[in-house]
Write a protein that binds this DNA or RNA. Structure first.
Lengths: 198, 198
DNA sequence: CATAAAAATGAACATTGTTCAATTTTCTTG
DNA sequence: CAAGAAAATTGAACAATGTTCATTTTTATG
């Protein structure tokens, strides 16, 4: 059997990704096996390899969709705070990032998984790059009359810091515990990072 | 054959860990298979399970040793800068962390691996906790006359931020590229985080 | 309708972590 | 020192994994 009129090529790809995301978010990345996914969409493992080339290929496409959702969430939160101060928008985008990670724990962890054996596809870097342009915009607003390169440095430094705090809470790999939530830490970071700018 | 006089229980454990660390640092965690390790120390996979219970058990013990080395490196760097200002010591411990991660890339990544299926042993949390007491001491010095709880918050916030920056550079999972090194970012973070304290 | 192209299959392969009965070595005890 | 108990080591087996690919089946084409 082949090219069963059930699904076009694109439909099949979409279907596979949707089911994979469902499994991963519920049960974590370890539950994502070729046989299980194939079985749940009514195909066989070989078909997955026709579409994605490898499991890593599938993972990268899943991550692209997660990044897309994250990007929309982030810029949405900034828009909502459009009438507030730049500081309000910083807080909004920060909390938005934190909430997204908490609500999509397994998918968020997948974004930073280090055990892929294949290199990411070419389009992957741009997806990452585009994620935090809203943050750059806010920071450019706060630190006006500053070189573009410095804005980039500040934005990345701030985001990496937030990410570290988030990573700590989500994975429990660092010395967190004892009533210290990521929210308290991000508040503290904002205070110190943007403190002199008021 | 059993209990071959070749090695005592402890020697065998040490030997296994040493060889595992060697493999992991050279070729990454994916190269760490039970059969390969066993083969390279002249035993069989079953023996590894007698000692460590599971592969995760081995990983956790490897990580404990890596943390030990890291802890010594960090406090060593602080001692070297003992005659300088607190800010000098912050810079020293930060660079020390960054350098350790760069020089022990694979082992450092292993510390933050999220794919363990077994829970960490009880003693594991303390090992993590103990890692950054030197940092707390310095921060307590900088922010004198501040509640102990606030010191802890500041220390963890700062460390998580550094960790995020480091994670970004090492794993290349975030928007780094374009001449932006982790060193520039940590310098910027120190500037903003401890800026008002001079 | 026949032939070519594409898609889907399913069996096979090499590896993996893990288990465990059997075997071999060491320890203990009389 | 001998014999039985205890401990350590083995090696074969198991289920599961990612991946490949010749074969089969379906669709498209002339």
């Amino acid at each position: 059997m082949a090219r069963r009129n059930d699904h076009s090529r694109d439909e099949l790809k979409t279907l596979t990704l949707a089911q994979s995301l469902k499994i991963a978010e519920k049960e974590g990345m370890a539950a994502l096996t070729a046989r299980r996914i194939a079985n749940e969409i009514g195909y066989t493992p070989g078909t997955l390899y026709n579409i994605f080339g490898s499991m890593d290929g599938l993972y990268y496409e899943m991550n692209a969709l997660t990044m897309q959702r994250l990007a929309e969430t982030l810029s949405g939160s900034v828009q909502k705070a459009a009438s507030g101060t730049p500081r309000d928008r910083i807080k909004a985008i920060t909390n938005s990032y934190l909430n997204f990670a908490r609500k999509n724990k397994h998918l968020w962890i997948m974004l930073f998984n280090t055990s892929f054996e294949h290199e990411p596809p070419d389009w992957y870097a741009e997806k990452i790059e585009g994620l935090f342009s809203p943050l750059e915009a806010i920071i450019a607003e706060i630190f006006s009359k500053i070189p573009k390169q410095k804005i980039k440095l500040l934005a990345r430094t701030y985001w990496a810091s937030i990410h570290g705090i988030c990573y700590l809470e989500i994975t429990r790999k660092g010395p967190l515990r004892k009533n210290l939530t990521a929210g308290e830490m991000t508040d503290e970071l904002i205070e110190r990072f943007f403190g002199q700018t008021d």
